Computed example of a mutant assay.
Amino acid sequence: MESPGPSRRALFRGQLLTRPVAVINDDCLAEAGIVCRSCGDACGTSAIHFRPRIGLPPQAIVNEAACTGCGDCVAVCPGDAIALGAARDGGAS
């Protein structure tokens, strides 16, 4: 079921008037111990990098300032763990 549209209050506050960026959720294969770099390979702007972790595969991290919101990473993710969402304040992670 899709979520309802944005509230009027959010629109008036400008909370949803930001550009879309890739958002990686907990369904990422790395969280299940599986090495996967499909999203990083598909990203033409190199906005996705991988943070090393001890005992686990590297964690995919989106640089929101570099992300164009093109969605190329969404299409290639085998775990359906990436969606386009609003950028957070600050623009980088």
Rank of each mutant, 00 (worst) to 15 (best):
T45N: 06
N25Y: 12
S3E: 12
F12E: 14
S46D: 02
L29M: 14
L56C: 13
C77K: 07
S46G: 00
R8V: 15
A47E: 01
A86M: 12
A65V: 02
S7L: 01
G14Y: 03
R88Y: 03
D26A: 06
G90C: 05
R51M: 06
C39E: 10
P20D: 07
V76C: 11
G40S: 09
P78C: 08
R51T: 07
C77Y: 09
L11W: 05
R8T: 15
F12Y: 07
A86F: 12
A47H: 00
G91R: 10
R8I: 15
H49N: 02
S38K: 15
I54T: 14
I54M: 11
A32R: 15
E2Q: 09
T45Q: 08
V35T: 11
H49W: 05
F12S: 08
A66H: 01
G79L: 11
P6Y: 05
C70S: 03
D89E: 14
I61V: 03
G44R: 14
A87L: 07
V62T: 00
A65W: 03
P58L: 06
I61E: 00
A75S: 11
A75G: 03
G71M: 05
R19V: 11
T45F: 06
A92V: 02
D80M: 12
A10I: 02
C39G: 09
G33L: 10
G44P: 04
L29T: 15
S3T: 10
G90M: 04
E64R: 01
L29S: 15
C39R: 10
C36W: 13
A32V: 11
G40Y: 08
A83S: 14
A66W: 02
L16M: 06
E31T: 06
S7M: 02
D72F: 10
V23R: 15
P4N: 11
P20C: 05
I24C: 03
C36Q: 12
V76L: 14
L16E: 08
L11I: 08
C28F: 08
T18M: 06
G44I: 04
V21I: 09
A42Y: 09
E31M: 06
P78S: 08
P52T: 02
A92C: 01
P52G: 03
G5N: 11
H49K: 02
R88G: 03
I61Q: 01
Q15S: 11
G55W: 10
S46P: 00
L16W: 11
T68N: 10
D80Y: 12
A42P: 09
G85K: 04
R13S: 09
F50Q: 03
P6D: 04
